[in-house]
Computed example of a mutant assay.
Amino acid sequence: MSSTRPPLTRKGADRLRAELEQLKGPKRQELINAVAEARAHGDLKENAEYHAARELHGFNEGRINELEAALSNSEVIDTERLNPGKKIVFGAIVDLVDLDSDAEVTYTIVGDIEADIKQNLIAVSSPIARALIGKMEGDEFEFKAPNGLRNYEITGVRYS
């Protein structure tokens, strides 16, 4: 993995490309139409609908730029082709047990732009991912979480 280009999983790149396609196609057209419709309502200085539509259009264009830059600057890693065994590297799907509460959680270590904690996709640059990299199934480790020190056991490591 090149150290100068941020990593991105193949699945993450595919999701970002699909989002980009949606934003550049149907979403962009929808927002252009909304701006045009609001503009037709007259005085632009006091037209809140127009200003809101322009703002949404600007956010959409900003996200398009962000995705295009991320996709062109990232190194896409096909995690299905990795063969690190049970060692945790970028792209690993890691099953953990919190030794203090017996709570189980599964994280996938992904590129920064594709991270989404709600889907248990953690950024490779995050503190927990950095604590996991290089460890193996069966290892136990301490992690300083925002709510205090946690003790985990790695119960599974896989790649897909």
Rank of each mutant, 00 (worst) to 15 (best):
P7I: 01
L16K: 04
L20I: 00
E21V: 07
L23P: 06
L23M: 11
Q29K: 15
N33W: 02
A36H: 08
E37M: 04
A38I: 04
R39P: 06
H41Y: 01
G42F: 02
E46L: 12
A48F: 01
A48K: 12
E55S: 09
L56F: 14
L56R: 14
F59W: 13
F59Y: 14
G62H: 00
L67C: 03
A70Q: 06
L71A: 05
N73P: 10
N73Q: 14
N73L: 10
S74E: 13
V76M: 05
E80I: 02
P84C: 09
G85E: 10
G85N: 01
I88H: 09
G91N: 11
A92T: 00
A92F: 00
L99Y: 03
S101V: 03
S101Q: 04
V105I: 13
Y107A: 06
T108K: 15
G111V: 09
G111E: 06
K118V: 08
Q119L: 13
Q119R: 15
Q119I: 02
N120I: 04
N120A: 02
L121M: 11
L121S: 03
I122Q: 00
V124I: 14
S126T: 00
P127R: 02
A129N: 10
R130I: 13
L132N: 01
G134M: 08
K135A: 07
F143H: 12
N147I: 11
E153A: 04
G156C: 04
G156K: 13
V157T: 12
V157G: 11
R158A: 03
